[in-house]
Amino acid sequence: MHVSVISAERAVFDGEAESVVAPAFDGLVGILPRHAPFMTLLGEGVVKISQAGGTLTRLSVMGGFLQVASNVVRIVARRAGPADS
């Protein structure tokens, strides 16, 4: 499935992934391929994106929303950037 993480200033991540874990407003949500259309508000925390081949990308996000539609995950965050440590 295709995942993109967009912050107000730029697109932070854009690519294919096997799973996404994101901090929603009330707890973590995990998204796997072929998830039903879904929209939720984001809280604050770290988005983990697992790609084929075991690559794990960690991004810290704050505010905004997450949208899943026809195998495309879009994380639109007020702030997003690489998670440090």
């Binding site: 929603a24 929209m39 939720t40 508000l41 929303f65």
Partner: peptide, 11 residues
């Protein structure tokens, strides 16, 4: 068609 959480209004 979306599952909306918490609700369209809240979002």
């Amino acid at each position: 068609n979306y599952i909306l959480k918490p609700s369209a209004e809240e979002i």
